[in-house]
């Protein structure tokens, strides 16, 4: 149970970062932390204590195995997260060229 709580704390740290930080690079780091927390949570759902990898061999009896599906799914979400990260960092660099600042409160040309 405590693992899940730690996971929740990690998620909250990420969300706090996104909501409260003014530097857009820190916001991006916050997003990364949130994604890690979500992925970790998904992996934890499939974890069994003392479980082993679900590979069948003719002479073995597998009693307690880890659910492999979350691992496959998380591999995909990590790839998606990487693409998002690249996009956000690329935009952040361009924003710095245009506005000369990383401060999100000063990047407010659009109003209304």
């Amino acid at each position: 149970m405590s693992v899940y709580l730690l996971c929740l704390i990690l998620f909250s740290v990420g969300l706090y970062c996104v909501l409260r930080m003014r530097n857009i690079i820190k916001i991006i780091i916050g997003i990364a932390i949130m994604e890690y927390a979500a992925n970790l949570f998904f992996i934890l759902l499939g974890y069994r204590t003392h479980g082993r990898s679900p590979i069948y061999a003719p002479d073995q009896v597998v009693k307690n195995m880890v659910d492999p599906l979350p691992q496959a799914l998380v591999a995909i979400t990590i790839a998606i997260g990487l693409a998002t990260m690249l996009l956000l960092v690329a935009i952040a660099i361009r924003i710095y060229e245009k506005y000369g600042t990383f401060d999100i409160t000063k990047i407010n040309r659009l109003k209304g």
């Binding site: 979500a38 949570f41 998904f42 952040a92 924003i95 506005y99 407010n108």
Partner: peptide, 26 residues
């Protein structure tokens, strides 16, 4: 400048939304 600002705000909100969806799916 406008496009980049709009895109950054859209992307940050969209990614946070996606994380919520992912946790829901989990």
């Amino acid at each position: 400048a406008d496009e980049l600002e709009a895109s950054f705000k859209y992307a940050v909100m969209g990614v946070v939304a996606s994380v919520f969806i992912l946790i829901g799916i989990a």
